[in-house]
Design a protein around this nucleic acid. Structure first.
Length: 411
RNA sequence: GCGACCGUAGCUCAGUUGGUUAGAGCGCCGGUUUGUGGUACCGGAGGUCGGGGAUUCGAGCUCCCUCGGUCGCCCCA
């Protein structure tokens, strides 16, 4: 690899082979399942005005200042490659007046961009599948979204070892009361907290709850739980979500320390977590964001959604069985190449996946065809001065191949 | 932004306390053999050992810098 070799940008990936197959399997499964739940497909721009993503987060956070791919276009406007789907969807909801469709169930997938240091299951350009219910304030929306996620993971065959962790952040009143109590509690233990968590205490105290530092975790264990601060309404909402999940047959565990970093989140927060992906164990996550669309200048529009990293799901799916051609058409004598091309097209039009083996040493082509694992082989060769077509296939496929190629004239 | 580990052929990797012209397997290309066949054998292409500097008579190997990768921390919409 010379120094002049073109290289991909850090954190981007060229997905190919079994990994690409696994990736496609995830997307195809998502598309199938979202239709079962009657989620409608939407396509959004890959970039937006920076404000679309920055405003809901607060201008000063690390996320905005350091982790977005932002740039100026030729008109001097600040644009940003989408780091998530939700904000763009919310913007589209507002600009297109989609409240007329509320409650609106939307599904989409595609590339997202975050300027981060790559590590296992984290890239700068990565891909997510995404589902949202916009304009739905009822806990049933949360339940349906979770049921869909649950079914998706099961249909991907990766539900083993994956746990749905569920929590509520309450309504704003609950949340503020809880935050206040947490700050008070952690202030009392400030000296024992890690350096990172002391910073969090000032910047984003809820985040202390998911600190990875063992010393912090000991302190967190005795922190006041959200349940002590839930209003009657918030408690009732969460109970309805739990009851709905039970009715839907979705298993979960309560994780009272599961939080979200941003203020527009309300009520339900959830993550499907695996222990098989190292530090990046969240495989699908989301929650209710009743405050977001207002923040972007729309009407009050309670909404809930989730997203999942396709790469991470693909890693869990593992390598699918290699796919083999139905038919390998082998040209053992180049004189018969046109006939072989004709045959290959015939077969493809009939829905048989067909590959032409017509390059390299003519003598080795048949062996390569056999080695490729193709289900059947049609070989074109000249023997004793006569053009011939030979088949290697079993039973009904052999009959089908003979039948399909009957009209082919070899001379 | 911080830390640890790793960069040798297209791929996976050997390479001794620093010592001649840097190797293997797989893959690829060609040939022979086989001739209803996944065989065996022979040959070939392909490396400034990530890049630069230093030490040394001599560096793939030691040291420094740099670039890249992996994993973790931070952050996580």
């Amino acid at each position: 690899m010379s120094q002049n070799t073109l290289k991909a940008i850090r954190g981007t990936q060229d997905i190919f082979g079994p990994e690409a197959e696994a990736f496609a399997f995830v997307v195809e499964t998502f598309e199938r399942v979202r239709k079962l739940y009657r989620f409608r497909r939407a396509e959004m721009p890959v970039f937006e005005k920076t404000e679309v993503f920055a405003r809901p987060l607060g201008e000063t956070t690390d996320v905005v200042s350091k982790e977005m791919y932002s740039f100026e276009d030729r008109g001097g406007e600040s644009l940003t490659l989408r780091p998530e789907f939700t904000a763009g969807i919310a913007r589209a909801f507002i600009t297109n007046g989609w409240q007329q469709h509320a409650p609106l169930k939307l599904a989409t997938h595609g590339p997202l961009f975050r300027y981060e240091r790559p590590q296992k299951g984290r890239y700068r350009q990565f891909h997510q599948i995404n589902a949202e219910v916009l304009g739905a304030g009822e806990p049933q929306a949360d339940v349906e979204l979770l049921a869909m996620a649950d079914q998706l993971l099961k249909e991907l065959g990766i539900d083993d070892g994956v746990t749905l962790q569920l929590n509520t952040l309450g309504d704003p009143e609950s949340r503020d009361a809880w935050r206040g109590a947490l700050v008070e509690y952690f202030e009392g233990h400030r000296g024992q907290l890690s350096e990172d968590s002391q910073t969090r205490l000032d910047v984003n105290p809820l985040r202390i709850l998911d600190s990875k530092n063992p010393g912090d975790q000991a302190i967190v264990a005795d922190a006041p739980p959200i349940d002590d601060f839930l209003t009657d309404e918030a408690r009732d909402f969460f109970r309805q979500v739990e009851a709905g999940l039970k009715a839907a047959g979705v298993e979960y565990v309560r994780n009272p320390r599961l939080v979200r970093g941003f203020d527009y989140y309300r009520h339900t927060a959830f993550e499907f977590v695996t222990d098989r992906l190292g530090a990046q164990g969240t495989v699908l996550g989301g929650g209710r964001y009743d405050g977001l669309i207002e923040t972007l200048g729309g009407l009050h529009t309670p909404s809930v959604g989730w997203a999942a990293g396709i790469e991470r799901l693909a890693m869990l799916v593992g390598e699918p069985a290699q796919s083999h051609a139905d038919v390998m058409v082998v040209v053992e004598n180049d004189v018969l190449l046109p006939k072989a091309i004709e045959a290959a097209q015939l077969l493809r039009r009939e829905g048989l996946s067909t590959e032409l083996m017509a390059s390299g040493s003519a003598r080795k082509r048949y062996d390569k065809a056999v080695k490729s694992g193709a289900v059947s082989i049609v070989a074109f060769d000249v023997r004793d001065g006569a053009n011939q077509m030979r088949f290697k296939a079993d039973g009904s496929l052999l009959e089908r191949l003979q039948d399909l190629t009957r009209t082919l004239s070899l001379d």
